[in-house]
Amino acid sequence: MNALVFFFDNAILSGLIIGAIYALGAIGVTLIFGILRFAHFAHGDMMTMGAFLSLIFAVLLQSMGIHSPIALAFFGMFPAMAATALIAILFDKLFYKPLRDAGARPVVMVMASVGVTLMLQGVLRVFGGVSARSMYIGSPKAIFQFHLPDATRPIVLTEPQIILFVFTAVTVFALHYFLTRTRLGKAMRAVSDNPDLASITGIDIRHVVWATWIIGGALACAAGTLLSMDVALKPDLSFNILLPIFAATIVGGIGQPYGAIAGGFLVGLCESFAVFNWSILLRPLEPMFGVDFPSSLAIVPTEYKLMIPFVILIIVLIYRPTGIFKGKVL
């Protein structure tokens, strides 16, 4: 029973947590990919920027003398989401729109986004430093333990993890409502399917582009903040988180927000299953099989975790380039 609890904690739960982060990031990447038609390399650093902004707002709230049972960073996240969305639109105006108007090929846009990601990295590290810091200012992180009847080991959930699950669930429902019930959401899907046809029918592409950056930026900020609340605010996240997010986007099918969510959880769970030490789960079964399992039976060593999203990406590109949800092959 202890082994099962350990498995639940270290494989399923941690997979779902990182999966939710990937999903939140991948929704933005897939929308940008579907509507603006380029891979947005600056998404990882946009997440870090969002986390920094949340921390700044949290410090502001604290200095105003506000206290709450829930972490202040969570309340700082909402103004930070708005700010990140604004900055995303600003970046689009400054760096992407001129290229789009000049008729640049998508791959030039990708390069511009690489430039943007380096600029963001530079600025964040100049002002934020290069060391990790905690998002919990003032109050400590609340930890909840759930004891099962015949296990000594509890199921452990921390406060940011609960916030993350609730936030992700709310986001998925809100996004579903937005994309299927509102005018702008439907317009976004139309532009994603066929931009020429959409603009002929009178859809204002400008508004659609803004909406894309608002959703992408706000969710990137949320993902960055919630990840930093769960672990720590690290300024060197960018490329390490970018690969799994891209993998999630492509697995789910480009331009498919539901696919991105599914892809995010898939990549997250694959990662945690691959580095999980399966011998812990198998050891209680040893008498049954009459064999000795080796003490470490992880599919890949932890340091090669980054291989998992890459391998998933390669397999999808070879065998099903449209992704699970039949996205575009542009």
Binding site: F95, L99, A104, V108, M111, A112, V114, G115, V116, T117, L118, M119, L120, Q121, G122, V123, R125, V126, G129, V130
Partner: peptide, 18 residues
């Protein structure tokens, strides 16, 4: 931190040249 400023300049150069 000062050396990180060079990351910014590299990124800025890429976007400006493009």
């Amino acid at each position: 931190r000062a050396l990180q400023m060079r990351v910014f300049v590299v990124g800025l150069t890429i976007t400006l040249v493009l």
